[in-house]
Amino acid sequence: MDDNAKSIIKVENITIAYDDFVVLKDINFEVKQGEIFVILGGSGCGKSTLLKSMISLIKPVTGKVLIDGKDIVTAQGNELRDILSGIGVMYQNSALFGSMNIIENICLVLEEFTNLPKDAMELIANMRLKVVGLEGAGYKMPSELSGGMKKRAAIARAMALDPKIIFLDEPGAGLDPITSAQLDELIRKLSRSLNITFVIVTHELDSIFAIADRVIMLDKETKSIIATGNPNELRDKSTNPWVKQFFNRQAVEK
């Protein structure tokens, strides 16, 4: 990842609120093409909320989210479809469609956005499964997969349309440390070999040090970003007590 890569996501001055309750205020940051970008912070500080606002599930009160130059906040109809076809999302609990097998889950997007014949779609689906290490599990139902396999399947589905950006909400949640580490490895592999940009919400330090190129840290009190930068640098150089505590205490404990 080189430093002068171009920005693929620009978040400009967004303020997000649920009714009267402001969760985040005046947030600004950029994500560079090809980097693994991690959003971290304590529980309930608005990580998922921020992520949802970047993928059009929540409308911020003010501000813009530019994805590859196009504002996803105001986009509608075909314009929104275009932007959405360029991103993939993996949800915290995988969100595979329970009534379809894994291949059908992946093909669903392909059916919607392409005119490929069925066998071509299945081939593509199987290719995605190969990449995430799930070859052979394609005709299983989501309920037959373990937690880690579900997450892999969800990543495969997120990759269906060859997106430039993949968003992940707490990929390690509910997984044992080894499975979680394998998932991190997969993310790094995809980032390196396919130059996919990753935006990841997590608070697992192991994971952060293993994969993150850059992090932002959200704070519940001030509803803003309290730190930005490379995790190793933040651990060693940050002067903010909260940030120091977060990086050091857990790092010592583990």
Binding site: I55, L84, E112
Partner: peptide
């Protein structure tokens, strides 16, 4: 149930 499992969100961000 789909809503709670974020499947409805997934549909939305998949453009469906």
């Amino acid at each position: 149930t789909m809503k709670i499992n974020e499947e409805v969100d997934a549909l939305t961000t998949m453009g469906l």
